[in-house]
Write a protein that binds this DNA or RNA. Structure first.
Lengths: 197, 197
DNA sequence: TTTGGTGTAGACAAATCTGTCTACTAGACA
DNA sequence: TGTCTAGTAGACAGATTTGTCTACACCAAA
């Protein structure tokens, strides 16, 4: 411990080359799929040497795992930005994020679902990372439902997860006309009548 | 027209080599993903020469398109086997097929969603074929909902599609304990109270 | 000044990818 | 018998894949 030279400002800061690789991979993997993007392309667009890449990511799958964890981090940050609200409003705001994402140019559905489709083995580290994110989100919804007075928050969280995945798919593949309205109707039908009316 | 030698029994029958390729591709693409399976592997397992393969499928993407259409055909056949029932029962039976599929060994989610994840370009023929199947299923649900007396069958079909995709995802990635019950609860919540009670 | 860490540039290996092409075989039919 | 069709076997080309390795440059700290 003694003698290390890490400045206080270095805490949490990571190598700029590593960040460039991860940012480039996040962009390309999401836009074109994991298997469709090769290492050579990533290092070229990130402006990084091959040896540097393999220093930080000993194999491509480790980069894919880092990509999933990065998407998870970005997703949590988006939910954090919602701020403190009544439980039911928070749930609705979380699902509004689907519509927000779908409105972005280059939207291509859920990065976790897309990546899972490319990894058949459920024990693969990439699939494990996807499972972790899904469990986190499910449990978050469950706690919010419990705070909303839902009588069976666990089952309702299952149903909300189903709805969330379906909405991410629909907003990508079907592009329904009134997505925000479809989201509201779907979620309110699942949440049931609110306590205050 | 005159002079062709096709026997009456040949109508609808296709080359056995072609069928072997398509069956093998259907099995491998579903189990491992489209980009993960190469032509060499398919022709080896189908027991077909490379020249024969390229005679029937001038490019891999055409095989992928045929794979999607084959899955569509299989899906329609499964729904046909349900037989004639009251509209609401038919809808519930269609969604029971999700639980049936999820109980099969080697279940890996929805072939259409998995394939769509690997084709970013929505104008690609493979994506077009996926869109065709999705529109067919959506319209089938819409007509059944209309027959069930649903006041807004189109919107309800949108919601049922969302639920169906979400259930296919959940049954694959989350493997919830009581899938059949989750399906019933989700669908009945969307369909609303039945007319006869 | 020397040493260690971080990074670049790129050759290289070995495998795999799609797609083309040649040469051959077996059966059906005229 | 001769011809046409379907199919087999496999070499080949050219590109692309992941991953390793060598040689060099720069900077900061001891």
């Amino acid at each position: 411990m003694a003698g290390h030279t890490t400045d206080i400002t270095d805490i949490g800061r990571e190598s700029s080359a590593r960040n460039r690789v991860l940012d480039t991979a996040t962009r390309l993997f999401y836009a074109e799929g994991v298997h469709a993007v090769g290492i050579d392309r990533i290092i070229a667009e990130a402006g990084v040497a091959k040896a540097t890449f393999y220093k930080y990511f000993p194999a491509k799958d480790e980069l894919v795992r880092a990509y999933i964890q990065n998407q998870s981090r970005l997703g949590r940050a988006a939910i954090d930005r919602i701020g403190k609200r009544p439980a039911r409003d928070t749930v609705l705001a979380i699902f509004d994020l689907v519509a927000d994402a779908a409105a972005q140019p280059g939207y291509r559905g859920c990065p976790f679902l897309n990546a899972a489709a490319e990894y058949p083995d459920p024990d693969h580290p990439v699939r494990q990372a996807i499972g972790e994110h899904r469990r986190w989100k499910h449990d978050l919804l469950r706690d919010l439902l419990a705070a909303d007075g839902n009588p069976d928050p666990n089952t309702s969280a299952d149903i909300l997860t189903v709805a969330g995945d379906g909405l991410l798919i629909a907003s990508h593949l079907d592009k329904p006309a009134n997505l925000r309205q479809l989201i509201r109707e779907t979620i309110l039908q699942i949440l049931g009548p609110s306590a205050d009316r």
